[in-house]
Design a protein around this nucleic acid. Structure first.
Lengths: 224, 224, 224, 224
DNA sequence: GATGAATGAGTATTCATTCAT
DNA sequence: GATGAATGAATACTCATTCAT
């Protein structure tokens, strides 16, 4: 009798969510819609009505899954900031040279930028940082600083072994991720209205090459 | 319908001169306040009341200078995206080596990040890019792409002269500015709730060193 | 489509008997909770969710016992406005003096105020009188006016026998119950936020004494 | 040019309130409407839209005069609880007998019940006491307790001079006002749906007579 | 020019009621 | 019978914009 499923077949739309599973499914469906909405219009300008419609339910139903618009935002950040870092550490068990470790982790990082929602999330966080300082803190501490620490430790190891000619690993670590952040911003912000698209893969490969090349040779004296 | 221009019709000469000045002055005062407000809270969440109060006038008076909230935003971007790039080109008239030109322009760029409102403007633009695609386009075309073109031309020159070992100057140019964008984001977003502050000057110096070092040596083959 | 009524269709006899009892029980449980809720927050501000939780069931289940929030209120007033008055009349069969009858009935009335839910009910009715004029009418006609008539008849009897020096029994009857209403209001409204508690028993005893004393002596001329 | 004044001629409706006077006027006009609305439907069930319409303005305009619905309520109580008590004390300068003082003050009190908004205010306070305990406290402390204290002092004086045969003046004082409260309740609640109207003046005169008569004669022993 | 009162179109949130399970 | 997910209408409050003064 119910033929109104114009939406995706996997979604439990138009079916009451009874089980815990389907409730969780519904939740993450809402979060997916919210991600796009917040990304597109920002937190303040996003209307709950739109999120609800996008998730195939009424505004009132949203409140069965989230306490408030704000908690939707919080849920979004928390849920997505969770699992990202895990994969990275596993990668490094082997006793690679610092150079190889660096290459691996940078590649991994870079590939993350394409498949995942991370760039969107980052844009959201930048945009609404003023309204959600706690979320910014959470994100910085639980994701970025840990990522930076991981990179820093490899750099330090390379420095100790004489492989890398660097001075301040904690600064250099930031240079490692800078082009990745740049790519995320570029793709989410500037590419939207541009007809040339940035080849992110190539850009990041080039970054890796130049950067590793740069730290593997003794630095010339700057003239400054 | 608007008959309040009493001067214009008869003697449109110089009674307006002083007022025009002060009007322009007032406008830029307002824009200054707006910059901070939009930066802090985003376009949607910023109230005209607050901007007015900050500029020492009432909400209604704003409409003597700007047609709407939106035109305030537009005015802000347009006004600030204007000059900026002139100084850079002058810098390079002399017949420096590509290496020196690169060093100069990177330093200049970097120093701009500290004194100017540019990072704030960038954050605003990122945040409200969804609502103002035209502004993003303007900013990209009139500032970023020109800057990138300048850098690219130097890189190309260095590549042609055999000074730089690079492949795709248009990509590499982006790697030049990536840490600057990164710094802008970091300072405006992440540093707010953090007690450690990033030494931007040192970071960018390190960037310049490593980067130039990286492109002045032949690249090793990547294992990928 | 609803086939869950397995008993009704075939043998509609006595399987239902026990459930009818328990249904009535459930109803009055709900009403008890509702009384407190309406008393505490008023009709409009009371949430069915809270009543349901208080009665150990879900919101939906309430609708098995009551048609609507409104019918809950109606049920409450009707159920409680029912008996109450019977005991009073019995009290007076004997051939007491009007004075003794008066004393008895006033004492009885007064003692009712402490043990029963009457004061709460009165507060509810006062509070929501605007929304439920019919309930006010019901309460006035079925309880108050009957009580007043009873008192009035005793007063009339005392007047006729020369025991009481009163003029308008129907007005004086109201003076009899006024301190009782006052007590109900005081206790339910003002005492809540006060640390001194009113000794209702003593107040009403004093009332009875002064009042009877007042009507048993010839009235002086008022100077007005 | 402005012929849309369908409302009362005295009200500044449809005229922008520029001066402080007219602002104050507007405020009290709103409060008058609010008084009736809260009285009729209770705080929760009253819609700001209705108050606004009643006061001849839009909902938004209300917020120019009051911060919130709640502050409207608070303003109402505070503004009205202010001046009531003043007149009473003046009345008593002369060196009347306690009996005369009592008569005067009771008459004054009683007359207040007819002309003023006091009964409505009292009904409002009773109805919404749960939501506004602070207002109840304010009202009790600033009005009722002071009134009771005034009455109590006269009673005490009469007791000391041997004029009054009473025991506990603080309780007896409550008996003085009980019929006034009763009248207020009766008129605002029960009379609405009744076709017989209570002669408040006569009721309170009778109260005064019986009560004074009751305390001017030695009390008989109660049989209890 | 400037003020600030007023408007009115939003928008988040609540909650009685319904209904699939 | 009972649950609790879902609905949708209602409502306080906000704020860009207008306009009388």
């Amino acid at each position: 009798m119910n033929e109104s499923n114009q939406q995706k077949s996997t979604s439990p739309v138009n079916t009451r969510a009874r089980s815990d599973e389907s409730k969780a499914l519904r939740r993450s469906e809402i979060l997916n819609v919210a991600l796009d909405a917040f990304f597109e219009k920002g937190f303040k300008a996003t209307r709950l009505d739109d999120i609800a419609k996008g998730a195939g339910m009424t505004k009132g139903a949203l409140y069965l899954y989230f306490d408030s618009k704000e908690s939707l935002f919080v849920g979004l950040i928390e849920e997505m900031a969770q699992p990202k870092l895990e994969g990275m550490k596993q990668l490094l068990n082997t006793t690679d040279s610092a150079s190889d470790a660096m290459l691996k982790i940078m590649s991994k990082f870079a590939s993350h930028l394409n498949g995942s929602q991370l760039p969107k999330l980052m844009k959201i966080l930048i945009a609404d940082s003023g309204a959600f300082p706690d979320m910014v803190t959470l994100y910085r501490e639980s994701l970025i600083k840990k990522g930076l620490a991981l990179i820093e430790s490899i750099l330090q190891q390379g420095k100790d072994s004489g492989e890398f000619y660097i001075d301040a690993p904690h600064l250099v670590a930031k240079l490692v991720i800078a082009p990745m952040i740049f790519t995320a911003i570029w793709k989410t912000v500037f590419e939207k209205t541009d007809n040339q698209i940035l080849d992110a893969k190539k850009l990041l490969e080039t970054h890796i090459q130049i950067f590793l090349n740069g730290i593997k040779h003794p630095l010339e004296q700057s003239h400054e």
